[in-house]
Design a protein around this nucleic acid. Structure first.
Lengths: 319, 319
DNA sequence: GTGATCTGAGAAAAGCTTTTACCAACCATC
DNA sequence: GATGGTTGGTAAAAGCTTTTCTCAGATCAC
């Protein structure tokens, strides 16, 4: 039997007797034949491989994104190269070169910050590039979370359960998402309380509560925190002051970093940026581009989702 | 100029005039020529690609291991497929098949637990397999942390700074590493205090302190905790009881999970399992096997390292 | 029975690189 | 000047699939 006949039988292509086809398939299965993807890729110009480039060492954001990508692409037989580049331009270039050598069908760039670029230029590659949760280039396809909507979700929830003096404790003002969330906070809460900018740490959350409670006048009855770590520090500080969460003060976080949010006492109500879904869409998009299907460039904002736990009181909208 | 001449020039092989060689290289650099790794792999039977299989969804252990692997292999031009399989045998098989199709030079299996197997059989593959931080098969090469030595390190440190009543609060007894650490604890601390088995959560650390302090008799002057989360819960509980850390009680964790250990107040002294180094060695080993170099099978225990922060008092051994 | 159509299968090329074998030219040696 | 050894380079094969082309044989219509 010739090689080409076997190939056609296995790929359900060409004309041949159905019993020949079946026989080939059976024998192939018996001997455990698996086509060499390298040879196939050499011919088809598709390697069924993509690269994921990230500077997020701890995987805080990258892992959910990666999970989504992998989830979306495994059905299409696509595998993912993970390259952690740690803000090192030389290392990044090495990894990009290695990926290009290996004929990746596309590259997804992801990071830990919406308003920062990866330290490597991906704009003139001959393979498609999609940006996810990191700043993209002109005319690129970029996926990001809708932080404004997420923040609105949080503050509206606090208002809905009856809170009126909502303070906002968040990260450094130079973060784009900080400004976006603060803007939405102002809009919904109506400037009743100030915004406290700081750093992304528990101790800042702790300190911010000290500041707020040391001030004269009415204390906040709710805290909208810029991330779960700050929220956790705030909850700890409130407990130490004898302020009850959620009875006296509602606290809401951002990120839904389960390891922090779910272990806090009480568990944190928080905003989830749906990073897995973001990864899924990025994966499908880079696949579409690799297959030559047209994709409109631009920034796509994905809505966030509110995760209701116990730190706000109120009732969950469902479940 | 013929193709073969160019190939030999670029690979510094064959005989040719040095000025021809230079000229070829210069032109190659000019036109940005990069050899197709697929075609090269087809011939050399090496894809310069390995697969990393993990069931550790949150990357708690996998990310440092991955970083070490990548770090060790990037110099050799090897890229890494990351496959998260989430304890799903079917998904695992799909990923393994995909990797084999893509002619990976080897596979590293890693997980979140030393005494559990990945839900897929890797024992009869025609590519080398190395296990890292997960249970391997007979005659395989397995890298793991030396939990016994790590625990000894921790308890000896507590003794050295003058603590005499060291309690051990740890995870579920069915974990192999829990038993190993408890064994070392007993050996070094001399059975002065009981071992409290529980779960890997902050709240268990919190509860354990309640239990210990509610009992009559002398209280412990040190806690050796099975991981950083438990330690953190314990520290919180101690603070709530007005017990000062580290003045009254020293607390030591395990894992050096920076995000927990460094954010605890006070920052946790803890045991680092050197997972990055573990990954590095696993990477180099699978590479050696892929290149046909002999490697003795067996389990290799890597020593842990004590990270001294502020939760124990005492002085750091150096720096 | 013969030409036309169709069917099943094999041959060959292409994809890109590396390696081995080979060849032509050159120099030196006797 | 013939021989032998270098030297610098080319031709070809191999690695594994897929696709296109070709071909032998069979079937069918007239």
């Amino acid at each position: 039997m010739s090689i080409s006949t076997a190939s056609k039988a296995l790929n359900d292509t060409g004309r041949m007797g159905s019993e020949t086809r079946e026989r080939v398939k059976r024998i192939a299965a018996e001997i455990g034949y698996r086509p060499n993807a390298l040879a196939r890729g050499l011919l088809s110009k598709r390697s069924f491989t993509i690269g994921l480039l990230t500077n997020d060492t701890y995987g805080r954001f990258t892992l959910p994104v990666m999970a989504g990508i992998s989830d979306a692409l495994v059905d299409h037989g696509v595998s993912v190269f993970l390259c952690a580049i740690e803000d090192d331009p030389a290392l990044a270039q090495i990894h990009v070169d290695a990926m290009l050598d290996k004929q990746v069908d596309g590259i997804i760039a992801t990071g830990k910050r919406l308003d920062r670029r990866l330290p490597v230029d991906l704009s003139n590659l001959h393979v498609p590039v999609v940006y996810a949760f990191t700043e993209g280039t002109q005319n690129s396809v970029t996926f990001r979370s809708d932080d404004e909507q997420g923040a609105r979700l949080a503050v509206e929830w606090l208002m809905k359960i009856g809170r009126r003096r909502v303070a906002h404790v968040t990260g450094p003002q130079e973060f784009f998402s900080v400004r976006e969330r603060a803007g939405a906070y102002h809009e919904v809460a109506g400037h009743r309380e100030p915004v406290l900018y700081g750093v992304w740490s528990e101790s800042w959350g702790h300190d911010a509560v000290e500041q707020l409670w040391k001030r004269s006048g009415e204390k906040p009855d709710a805290l909208f925190c810029g991330n779960d770590q700050i929220a956790r520090g705030a909850v700890d500080a409130l407990r130490e002051r004898g302020v009850k969460v959620p009875q006296d003060v509602s606290v809401i976080g951002f990120d839904n970093w389960e390891i922090v949010a779910a272990q806090t006492r009480p568990p944190l109500t928080t905003v989830d940026m749906e990073l897995k879904e973001l990864g899924r869409q990025a994966g499908l998009t880079v696949l579409a581009l690799a297959e030559g299907r047209p994709v409109d460039p631009g920034v796509r904002k994905l809505p966030c989702r509110l995760i209701v736990r116990q730190s706000c009181g109120g009732k969950a909208p469902r479940e």
